[in-house]
Design a protein around this nucleic acid. Structure first.
Lengths: 177, 177
DNA sequence: AAAACTGTAACTATAATGGTTACAAACGGG
DNA sequence: CCCGTTTGTAACCATTATAGTTACAGTTTT
């Protein structure tokens, strides 16, 4: 089906930011971790910012970080931010109106697709970014990371007025902004 | 995401055959109902035949019909026949091995994606082709169909040795073949 | 002013899907 | 046995989603 890795990348990006805490990450740092191009990351960050999940900052000390507490952001929020529009789609071209099946199949299928989407959303709603990060830890802690050369992810940086995304649909416990 | 209407079309096709009963349908008839090209239908029928859901017949009285009782074929069977390979995908390019998040995110995401897929499959497994056809009926019965001009869908046709698909993964109650 | 970022446009590349034409092979009926 | 019909299948082209790349204007810190 949808060879859709956008969801996976988005969760990766947000998990990375949760890991790094208040430290704003540059698109190039994120791109290095995801193994892609910084512009691809910036495009995705734009979507996540519109949904109110991250805040970004231009300028020489700029970067992006989570807008909310990672324990308050669910994978459903991420899914909705990407506007995937459901697991399956109906016919592109409407079926024949002259066929007893064709004339009603879209209605019936619509019900089925909604059932599927609801099931997916219920699973995603039960998992937070914090959950993902927790499941990450057992394999290597922030303080004992190979290759990270003592980058102080939790270093204090007072980055003035990070701008939150416009929409902020679900105003969930904004702790930072 | 995947603007994937293949699943919708496949369910449409199988519902049409369930509606028509033992009458084999030509790819052109099916294409008319779906509002697409006969070759597109034949390509999909090939996939459905490989999964053992339909049987086809070449030659002048040829066509395709259901291989099994429609009350025994679930939408999960259809989903698997199309080999969609899951709702979401992992990263195309593997993430950085030098990043504490990147090195483990695929494992964690794999678990999440499996949870999602399982939820989808449980919904699909609970719905049969017969259920879809039943939900279709309230809006017009086979005997009172406009434009069908008394086509006897349930007419007796002794079509010799329709060939079933090769794989037939789930050998569910073959009533016809 | 200079350097370092993001935001964003403009291309190109790749892959999945769908539409179309064409034709060989299979099959039933005269 | 030949003829017409239909599937099986290959070979194209079109469209769309995703992704990768380059380039540059705007913003912010030093």
């Amino acid at each position: 089906m949808s060879t859709n890795s956008r969801f996976a990348v988005a969760v990766h990006v947000l998990s990375l930011m949760a890991w790094s805490g208040e430290e704003p990450l540059k698109s190039e740092q994120v791109a290095d971790s995801v193994n892609t191009n910084p512009v691809v990351i910036r495009r995705m960050l734009l979507e996540l910012a519109e949904a109110g999940l991250v805040v970004s900052q231009t300028g020489s000390l700029g970067g992006s970080k989570l807008a909310n507490d990672p324990s308050q952001t669910t994978l459903l929020d991420v899914y909705e931010a990407l506007e995937c529009g459901g697991v399956f789609s109906l016919h592109r071209q409407p079926p024949s109106r002259d066929c007893p099946v064709g004339v009603n199949i879209e209605t019936v299928l619509g019900d089925v697709l909604r059932e599927v989407d609801t099931a997916v959303e219920q699973v995603l709603e039960g998992i937070t970014i914090n959950d993902v990060v927790q499941r990450l830890r057992p394999c290597g802690d922030a303080s004992t990371v190979k290759g990270s050369k003592k980058k102080h992810y939790d270093r204090e940086v007072s980055l003035p007025q990070l701008r939150a995304g416009a929409k902020t649909r679900r105003a969930k416990a904004l702790r930072t902004a």
